[in-house]
Write a protein that binds this DNA or RNA. Structure first.
Length: 858
RNA sequence: GCCGGGAUGGCGAAAUUGGCAGACGCAGCGGACUUAAAAUCCGCAGGGCCCAGAAGGCCUGUGGGGGUUCGAUUCCCCCUCCCGGCACCA
């Protein structure tokens, strides 16, 4: 065994201490305790010479325990917060609780525990979990939305909205979830089902409710999406779709014959008024108000309409609107096309919905798919009024295939408008309608006002009174908050639980002093989350929701620097809070138009190809992961396993790999931290032997990669793998270290930087290493390492050599070699020679530092 | 139907400006250490073919088809499939 000769200078694996296992639990609980002692550790500064940075994760609902989705979300935010701290920013990184909501009431019913108690217990538990996971929150700013100190400002805002005419009460058809036993906003209905109960079909009820006039801001909400370049395109698109702006024309058709109680005109919304000379009928939604007049003395028609309504409802519930065959009934009534005086039959059809436009359309079979299909079925006239514009003016225009729906045609058979292009005709015809008083250009939105009344207990009481004499009376500002009473009997049926509490309901009218009843509905919990992030700026203010100056410091002109959360809030929370910000701005409380400058939506955590859920039994508990592998491992794995915007498939074997890595880092520092060595704190010498240069080079390359991938690309997975590569190089250098070929100051430099590079991702281990290395300063206050391009530079590089685009060889050259030298070396390579033998070289391409390609002919 | 995002080894993934495809990790295989196992450490590893075997060599490969280019995971055109949003939207 001749290689044994080396064993005097080489440390064999057996000689290295390998039984020093990293006891994550011991280390992490030690640091968690220390951090617990230091309340101001992660506190943001109110006044600072440093630049502000507001990083925020969406606040959780205190359901009982964190799940892996939370861990992933907060691991991203926490890494960012720590990174920005180390980069010298004044970081605001707060946390709170979206603590009103129905689950607390359900728990109250099933466990006989008051909602408050249940909620506060959950908060305590989840807060302890967050602390054990090591998230760096400024707990002095904690916001709990179910506390009167918070919700009184919901009430205050409501009064302001009411003053401005932006909160109003109206009886209308609303979505009712029979499981939640409450009304839902449109945003909370998904495919006709409750957003919380996928199996529960939402019913329609006629109720009197409070609404917030979000539609006042519809256009601004749409336009300002353009400003949100820091938001995912996906979210902007979803909001654009949700707002659903549509530009068109409103046209009034007069009813022919007897006037009915519902009115004398049918108002129609169309985006294609240019096709109106091709209209051959008017179609009403079965729930259109005029229909009642038509069916009053016509029982067969009434029955047919009921049939249509039932069909529509069924189709909506089944989620296949659009696939149902079109049906309709002829009312044998007529409406008059105001452009040409033509009498058009009025039909009632199942493909017209009441909640879009006016619930009535003009039917133009020649130029609309649906109208065409309907006209074919009922043999209605199909009249061509738009022709394609011929590319070649000489060419005779062919009859287009029907229906011809292109927007860029030219009008025919359209009276005075014939010959105009569609675009010109729409403009002219809308203007004429307005001038003659039978219509005008109009914009409609899909977005509807936000219904916020909830027939539930655990929410913010709506601060309104009903007086027999004075009607609706707002609670005076000085009487806020209207406290949500405790000890309320909770049942899901029988309307608002508050309605059964006489001490709450009965009060006096502030106007006349007579008896009045309080509003017993509470607010949608999305009100709470619409402005909570402003409260973090000034969480203990008891005379205003927040101080404007303070909010302006943290929000600046563009809002929260980075907001992180799940894409499921793309429409709900994120559209409501944009609305709320615009409203507060108009109140003069803010100068920013938008709450969030940059938004990041992380992917879901899935397991075995499916979203984690109790029913599937594939839930991974964070507590269990912390107990088995440690908080650092759970956090690091959730950053490493996938880029943050993609779904993450949780694999237990994967987190084991991370645990191994953390142990590897720990053991290296265990063996190589030598803070008592006399040379430990000396500067790193300029002239390093080759093995030491290799470490130094890799170190600086790693600093560059982690720094670039962090803010530049948000690829935490590659940040982590870069550090892994560094650790692999350190391990490969252990023989050199044992031979004392690595100067001690470099050894220190490498390990210090290793701890710093890990600090945002694995804070516990990083702090432990920092201490092992004899460092006493605060890790978070230590600047992020700087990358030195000189030190990262390779002395020699390997250049691949291609012949006609195929890899044929490699040459090793000095990093600063000239093109001529590289090409000479490349051509001298044996394999390259073989590949070009007998051929003529046409071209030699050298991409400096990257590669050579030799192109031959023949 | 419209809009947005995807598709790369056995698996999670990487390739930043068009320049060595598969870094890093998991699982796997081999070795060291151990009485043994665990742990640890070192190494191998896209697929196929040639070669007894190894060394080595050849071919092939990023959902499919075409194009631009000396060179394409990357750019362009067409198509398939998957995920998400909106939708008889007038």
């Amino acid at each position: 065994m001749p290689e044994e000769e080396n064993s005097k200078t080489t440390v064999t694996p057996a000689e290295r201490p390998n039984d020093e296992r990293y006891d994550a639990h011991r280390v992490e609980t030690k640091w968690a305790e220390r951090w617990q002692q230091d309340a101001a550790l992660y506190a943001a500064e109110a006044e600072s010479s440093r630049q502000k940075y507001y990083v925020l994760e969406m606040l959780p609902y205190p359901s009982g325990a964190l799940h892996m989705g939370h861990v992933r979300n907060y691991s991203i935010g926490d890494a960012l917060a720590r990174y920005m701290w180390m980069n010298g920013y004044n970081v605001l990184h707060p946390m709170g609780w979206d603590s009103f909501g129905l689950p607390a009431e359900n728990a109250a019913i099933s466990n006989n525990t008051p909602p408050r108690e249940w909620t506060l217990r959950n908060i305590a538990n989840m807060k302890a979990q967050m602390k054990r996971l090591g998230f760096a929150y400024d707990w002095s700013r904690e916001v709990t939305t179910c506390f009167p100190e918070y919700y009184r400002w919901n009430q205050w805002f409501f009064l302001k909205l009411y003053e401005q005419g932006l909160a109003y009460r109206k009886k209308s058809r609303v979505n009712w979830c029979p499981k939640c036993c409450t009304v839902l906003a449109n945003e909370q209905v998904v495919d006709g089902r409750c957003w919380r109960h996928e199996d529960t079909i939402v019913e329609q009820r006629e109720l009197e409710q409070w609404f917030l006039r979000i539609t006042k801001y519809a256009d601004e909400l749409l336009r300002d999406l353009e400003k949100l370049g820091g938001w995912p395109e996906k979210v902007r698109t979803m909001q654009r779709n949700w707002i659903g702006r549509s530009d068109g024309t409103l046209v009034d058709f007069k009813l022919d014959g007897a006037v009915v109680p519902g009115g004398s005109t049918i108002s129609v919304f169309t985006t294609r008024v240019d096709t109106i000379f091709g209209a051959t009928s008017v179609q009403l939604a079965p729930e259109h108000p005029l229909v009642a007049d038509f069916t009053r003395y016509n029982q067969p028609l009434g029955a047919a309409v009921q049939q249509l309504i039932a069909e529509q409802r069924k189709a909506k519930e089944a989620g296949d609107i659009g696939l149902v065959e079109k049906h309709g009934v002829n009312t044998h009534r007529y409406a008059i096309n105001p452009y040409n005086g033509e009498k058009l039959p009025i039909w009632i059809a199942n493909y017209i919905v009441m909640d879009y436009g006016t619930g009535a359309i003009m039917s133009v079979p020649a130029h609309d798919e649906r109208d065409y299909e309907f006209a074919k079925k009922y043999k209605l006239e199909i009249r061509l009024v738009i022709l394609p514009i011929a590319n070649d003016p000489e060419e005779t225009v062919a009859e287009p295939a029907l229906p011809f729906t292109a927007h860029d045609g030219v009008l025919i058979n359209s009276g005075p408008y014939s010959g105009l292009t569609s675009a010109d005709a729409i403009r002219k015809m809308s203007a004429d309608a307005e001038e003659k008083g039978f219509g005008k250009a109009t914009v409609t939105y899909r977005l509807k006002d936000w219904g916020i009344s909830r027939q539930r207990y655990w929410g913010t009481p709506i601060p309104m009174l009903y007086c027999e004499k004075d009607g609706i009376v707002p609670v005076p500002e000085k009487d806020l908050p209207v406290i949500l009473p405790d000890n309320v009997g909770i049942t899901l049926t029988g309307g608002s639980p508050l309605g059964r509490v006489p001490e709450f309901v009965n009060t006096t009218c502030p106007k006349c002093g007579g008896p009045a009843r309080r509003e017993t509905d509470t607010m949608d919990t999305f009100v709470d989350s619409s402005w909570y992030f402003y409260r973090y700026c000034d969480a203990h203010n008891d005379h205003a929701p927040f101080d404007s100056k303070t909010a302006q410091y943290w929000f600046g002109e563009r809002g929260i620097d980075q907001y992180i959360g799940g894409v499921e809030h793309a429409i709900l929370h994120l559209i409501y809070s944009r609305f709320w910000t615009k409203f507060m701005r108009d109140l003069g409380m803010l100068t920013n138009d938008e709450p969030v400058e940059r938004l990041f939506t992380q992917g879901m955590v899935i397991k075995d190809g499916a979203k984690m859920s109790k029913s599937l039994g594939n839930v991974v508990s964070p507590d269990e992961m912390v107990a088995r592998y440690g908080a650092d491992a759970a956090r690091l794995y959730s950053l490493f396993a996938a880029p943050p915007d993609r779904d993450l498939d949780w694999q237990d074997s994967g987190i084991e790999g991370i645990q191994r890595f953390l142990g590897r880092v720990y053991r290296f520092v265990m063996r190589n931290a030598r803070p008592d060595h006399p040379g430990w704190r000396k500067p790193v010498p300029d002239d390093l032997p080759a093995p030491a240069r290799a470490i130094q080079r890799k170190l600086h390359q790693t600093i560059k990669r982690v720094s670039d991938d962090f803010l530049g690309r948000w690829h935490f997975n590659t940040c982590v793998s870069a550090v892994m590569e560094l650790v692999n190089v350190l391990y490969a250098s252990e023989d050199s270290i044992a031979q004392e070929a690595i100067p001690v100051p470099l050894l220190r430099d490498a390990q210090r930087n290793l701890a710093l590079l890990l600090a945002p991702f694995a804070p516990y281990l990083a702090h432990e290493l920092w201490e092992m290395l004899g460092e006493t300063s605060s890790l978070l206050k230590t600047p992020w390492p700087k990358f030195d391009p000189e030190l990262a530079k390779e002395e020699e590089i390997v250049i691949p050599v291609q012949v006609n685009g195929k890899l044929r060889g490699r040459v090793t050259v000095p990093a600063d070699a000239s093109e001529q030298f590289v090409l000479e070396q490349a051509l001298a390579d044996e394999k390259v020679q073989a590949a070009i033998a007998g051929k003529r070289i046409v071209k030699k391409i050298y991409v400096p530092g990257k590669m050579v390609n030799i192109v031959t002919s023949g």
